[in-house]
Structures are given as C-alpha cells and as structure tokens.
Design a protein around this nucleic acid. Structure first.
Length: 364
DNA sequence: GAACCGTGGTA
DNA sequence: TTACCAAGGTT
C-alpha cells in the first residue's frame, strides 16, 4: 500500500503533535474533558461544519448540562434545540442513549468500548473519538478529514466515499495512532485536514508533513483523494396546505422515523399529478387530516435540496370549511396562532415558505 | 452493501 | 445554477 517505501511513523506522530500544539483552534469542546460534552460535540459535528455547530453546542450544554438532565427532558424540547441542524435522528438517538445510560449504566457515559458502541447513534467514529479524547484510550478515528489526509500522504487509491474501502483507512490510521496521546493525535489529524489538507486548495507550504507526503512529492495533490461518482439525486414535487381556521393554522408532526422525523410542518404529500395542483392540495388535505377547505390559493413554491433528492414544494392557503381533524400519516397535530409558530421545530422547506404565508395572512 | 438521512457554505 | 463538501450512523 505504501509503494515499498519506508514510513517514519515516529516522525509523523511527533511532527503532527508539535504542529497541533502550535495552531490548534480554541473550540468549546476542547475546553472540557467531560465525556458527555465530548459526546454531544461529536454527534453534532457529524457531517456538519464546526462554525455551524458552535452555537448549537453552547445552547445544548446550557439547556442539557449533563446526562441526567437530557434523559429527563422532553424529546420535543431536544428537537426544538436541534431545529435547523439537520439529521434529526441524531437528536432522538442522543436522547434515547441518555435514557439508557441513566437506566442501565449508572448515569455515567460508559468507558467500555463494547458498552459505548451499543448506544444508539454511536458508531465506530464517535466511539473512538469519545474513548480517546475523554478516556485516553488508544482508538484511532477515521472521518472524512482523516481519509483525505491519509489518501494524500500515502497516495492511497481507495475512494473515500465508498464504504467497502473504509477498512483500509482504518488500518492505516490504527498504525499511525499515537498510543501515548490518542486524544490529541486524533484531533490533530482531523485539524490538519480541516485547516491545511483541505479538499480544495490545500495549504501544502504550511503542512508539517511536506517531507512525508507522497502526493506532494509526485505533484498529485489535486488528484487525491479518489472518489467514486455519486448518482445524481432525483426530484420530488410536494404540495403543502396551510389550513386556516379562526386565525389558527393546522400543523402536523412527522412520524419518529424517516425523513425529518419528529418535525412539524403544514400537511403535505407528494403530488399525484401535474393536472391541477390546487385540486391536488385540497384532496391531500382531505386525505391527510380529514378536513374540507375552500379552493386553495397558491402562495409560493420553494426549492430545497436533501441528501438524496431535490424538492419543489408548493404551499397553498386552504381556508377551513368543515370537518374534524382525523390524521392519516402524521402522528400529531396542533392549531397554532401564526405568532406562535416558532414554538415548534419546523424543517427547512417550511422555513423557506413561511415568509410568503405570513405576508398573505397580514394582507387578509 | 446500498440507500437513506439535512443544512449551509463555497467555487 | 449546479456540484461539491462537512468530526457518520442506521436500516
């Protein structure tokens, strides 16, 4: 894998550690050794930028300062704090894991790898991160940063976005790990990927590993890491109906599984056909919440990009005409005054459409 | 093993 | 506008 060349593992570890001590960012989760806080930070940082996470992390630790408080909290409150951060199952898993820790593990984040790994939402990466950073245990993390750095330094052809190749990176990361200071080492390697060995325009002159990097020596840095072509996401069309009754709007909650689990929205569904969207919307309202409404009035159509499909959602204003709410799909509902909408966790597409709705309501 | 699961920044 | 990408995990 390393082309027969000799690798100076000790030199790599030392130079990385020295570099990290010089340039490390002062991040909120680097000011604590509390396993709970480290865990929360790692969950939030999953597929999410540091800059985005910081305010969420601060609020979360303030509101839920330890495992016991989180376990005792209402899941809806956790979702509300997570609103806008995405991947909402992370919030549900964190809450459920806190409950398990209180019920079965004496209220402390477990330091046993096998126990930790059993908690929902904790996979290989987060387990290794918590164990190394909070408990000084010798586990190497492999995230997107680590793969990119290793691919360049060792000229690894393994695609970084193809699960079958993951084990190759883990093997190299294990060999490279500084077992004396695993927490510092793991953070240093990720910091190198975040600050220097970046996806585009890496800052090679600032890299502590210029003498070791095979991609740099062969002028191939822009060609690494390798990546397999992802499939282009398809497009979906949704119709959403804001049912208005006596100045209140009907909001529904999505089921606890699947897309946008647990978040609130206006009743919506994929469009049946392109023939008559307004009639589609009225039919959707009857089907999903059992209500009859006056002819829906188109307010706005928003675009939103999810991981695996693109969405165009048309929002209609639907004056209530009759019927009592009977849910088919959503698992909860509530009639909400427009100025109270911010009490519920809403997803991105709803937030995009909201200004048009509020403006229409003011105009009535 | 492949598909699913969000959002915002950036080029 | 589109494509890429970011401290992954679950089903």
């Amino acid at each position: 894998m390393w082309g027969g060349g000799v690798v100076d593992w000790d030199g790599l570890r030392r130079e990385l550690g020295d570099w990290y001590e010089r340039v490390r960012r002062d991040l909120p989760w680097r000011r604590t050794r509390d396993p709970y806080a480290i865990w929360v930070s790692e969950v939030m940082l999953q597929q999410t930028r540091v800059k985005t996470v910081i305010p969420y992390y601060e609020r979360f630790l303030e509101r839920f300062p330890d495992v016991a408080v989180l376990a005792g909290a209402d899941l809806q409150a956790v979702y509300k704090l997570w609103e806008g951060l995405g991947y909402y199952s992370r919030a549900r898993h964190l809450h459920a894991a806190a409950g398990m820790i209180m019920a079965q593990m004496g209220g402390r984040v477990p330091s046993d790898p096998q126990v930790l790994r059993r908690l929902p939402g904790i996979g290989d990466y987060i387990a290794a991160a918590v164990l190394s950073i909070a408990f000084d245990q010798p586990f190497a993390v492999v995230d997107g940063n680590v793969k990119r750095v290793l691919a360049r330094v060792f000229l690894m052809e393994t695609p970084v976005n193809h699960p079958p190749g993951h084990a190759r990176f883990q093997t190299v990361a294990d060999r490279l790990l500084d077992r004396e200071q695993p927490g510092r080492h793991n953070q240093a390697l990720m910091e190198l990927g975040a600050l220097v060995c970046t996806p585009k325009r890496p800052l090679c002159p600032q890299c502590p590993w210029t003498a070791h990097c095979r991609a740099l020596q062969s002028g191939a840095v822009p060609d690494f890491p390798r990546r397999v072509k992802p499939r282009r996401p398809g497009e979906q069309f949704w119709v959403a109906g804001a049912v208005l009754k006596k100045g209140r709007l009907l909001l529904t909650r999505r089921p606890d599984r699947g897309l946008l689990a647990g978040l609130w929205e206006f009743p919506c569904d994929r469009m049946d056909g392109a023939a008559d969207p307004a009639a589609d919307c009225a039919a959707m309202v009857r089907r999903q919440v059992g209500l009859h409404c006056a002819p829906p009035q188109h307010l706005v159509t928003v675009r939103h990009a999810y991981t695996h499909f693109k969405l165009r959602m048309a929002l209609y204003l639907c004056p209530w005409q009759g019927g009592r709410v009977r849910l088919d799909g959503p698992d909860h509902f509530d009639w909400v005054r427009p100025d109270q909408l911010d009490r519920l966790p809403l997803h991105g597409a709803v937030h995009k459409a909201l200004p048009a709705l509020l403006q229409a309501l003011r105009g009535q």
